[in-house]
Design a protein around this nucleic acid. Sequence first.
DNA 1: CATGGGATTGACT
DNA 2: GTCAATCCCATGC
Length: 200
Amino acid sequence: MNRLGRAFYERPVLEVAPDLLGCVLRHGDSAGVIVETEAYHESEPACHAFVGLTERTRVLFGPPARAYVYRSYGIHALVNAVCGPEGEGAAVLIRALEPLEGVEAMRSRRGVPRDVDLCSGPGKLTQALGIGLEHNEIDLLDGPLRIEPRPDDWRDVRWVTGPRIGITKAADLPWRFAAVGAPSVSRPWPPGLAARAARA
DNA sequence: CATGGGATTGACT
DNA sequence: GTCAATCCCATGC
């Protein structure tokens, strides 16, 4: 089967983030199409790697294509794909999926019935797929947790950009990327984005 | 060693 | 719209 290679992730994070839209995040028998991402880079203060190399950020500065999973607000696990060459701290946060396979297992883990509520947020999708902190630093190329290339239906996905969600630092950077027309986007788009999406 | 702040979610007014 | 839950980790004393 066709797969993404290390080189795919070893590029600037602002190229990888939109290219991941339409790709499939899979854990075990559950999988979903990535429809929303955000880019983070050590050069801006919203990125965890901004503080430099620490025990927590070590994975961000490591080889590309590994998972960076961390706990947010003491409650949720959020999953990122490490990007850029080794030594550069950058990653793409996976913010939302369209459920694709193993939907019953997702419903069971999430405890909600509607498909649109299963993976429409970064904390929701990790719960739906059973992703936890134990997956931090594992390789995303062909392990149990992996990202696969775009299915045929998503080969030419359209996307829009906008400001990142839920951050207080560098909130002006338009480093959020969302697939046009995907129901499972985590938050409504700002008016400007919605207008661009309608025209797209 | 104590403290403060989150890349969020779900429940409630 | 507001707000609490809950814990890891970076920072500062």
